[in-house]
Simulated assay, not measured.
Amino acid sequence: MADITQEEWQERIVNDDNAVILDVRTEEEVEEGFIPKMLNIDIRLGQEFLDEVEKLDKSKNYYIYCRSGARSGQACALMNQMGFETTYNLIGGFMAWEGETAE
């Protein structure tokens, strides 16, 4: 797991053909806006989160965010324990995001 800044995130993701953006916020939070082309799996679902993550391709590079960076950090740690090799945590989360968004 690596904590990366918005700038690092945007630089890496543009050149990463193996990238998956994972939003671990709640449905309500996602309705307020999100980073385009993301996959949403709410980390607060507990076992259901783990079950859904287990279905993902472990060879991909996961760019993970939440509202502030705390839950996404937890998601990165959990996913690393599950065998995912490359996870990036967005420092500051969606609250600090200044890049493109969708609703």
Results as ranks from 00 to 15, higher is better:
Ile4Pro: 08
Thr5Ser: 15
Glu7Ala: 14
Glu7His: 00
Glu7Gly: 01
Glu7Leu: 07
Glu8Lys: 12
Glu8Met: 10
Trp9Leu: 06
Trp9Ile: 06
Trp9Ala: 02
Arg12Phe: 00
Arg12Gln: 01
Val14Lys: 15
Val14Glu: 13
Val14His: 03
Asn15Lys: 13
Asn15Val: 08
Asp16Asn: 11
Asp17Glu: 10
Asp17Trp: 06
Asp17Lys: 11
Asn18Ser: 04
Asn18Leu: 02
Ala19Pro: 03
Ala19Met: 01
Ala19Ile: 01
Val20Asn: 05
Val20Lys: 01
Val20Ser: 02
Ile21Lys: 12
Ile21His: 02
Leu22Ala: 09
Val24Ala: 04
Arg25Glu: 02
Arg25Asp: 00
Thr26Pro: 01
Glu27Ile: 00
Glu27Pro: 05
Glu28Asn: 07
Glu28Met: 06
Glu29Tyr: 11
Glu29Cys: 09
Val30Asp: 10
Val30Asn: 08
Glu32Gly: 14
Glu32Met: 14
Gly33Ser: 12
Phe34Pro: 00
Pro36Asp: 03
Pro36Tyr: 03
Lys37Phe: 12
Lys37Pro: 01
Met38Ile: 04
Leu39Val: 15
Leu39Asn: 11
Asn40Ile: 10
Asn40His: 11
Asn40Tyr: 04
Asn40Gly: 11
Ile41Cys: 11
Ile41His: 07
Asp42His: 06
Ile43Arg: 02
Ile43Tyr: 03
Ile43Asp: 04
Leu45Ala: 03
Asp51Cys: 04
Glu52His: 08
Glu54Gly: 01
Lys55Arg: 15
Leu56Gln: 08
Leu56His: 04
Asp57Arg: 02
Asp57Ser: 05
Lys58Ser: 10
Lys60Pro: 06
Asn61Met: 01
Ile64Pro: 02
Ile64Val: 13
Tyr65Leu: 04
Tyr65Ala: 03
Tyr65Trp: 03
Cys66Asn: 04
Arg67Pro: 03
Arg67Gly: 11
Arg67Thr: 08
Ser68Pro: 01
Ser68Val: 12
Ser68Leu: 05
Gly69Gln: 05
Gly69Ala: 07
Ala70Trp: 05
Arg71Trp: 07
Gln74His: 06
Gln74Arg: 11
Ala75Trp: 06
Ala75Glu: 03
Ala77Ser: 15
Ala77Phe: 13
Ala77His: 15
Leu78Ser: 10
Asn80Lys: 10
Gln81Trp: 07
Met82Cys: 08
Glu85Asn: 14
Glu85Val: 11
Thr86Val: 11
Thr86Cys: 09
Tyr88Gln: 08
Tyr88Gly: 06
Asn89Ala: 00
Asn89Gly: 02
Asn89Pro: 04
Leu90Ile: 09
Leu90Ala: 00
Gly92Asn: 09
Gly93Ser: 12
Phe94Asp: 02
Met95Ser: 14
Ala96Trp: 05
Trp97Asn: 10
Glu98Asp: 14
Gly99Arg: 09
Gly99Glu: 13
Gly99Tyr: 13
Glu100Leu: 10
Ala102Asn: 08
Glu103Val: 14
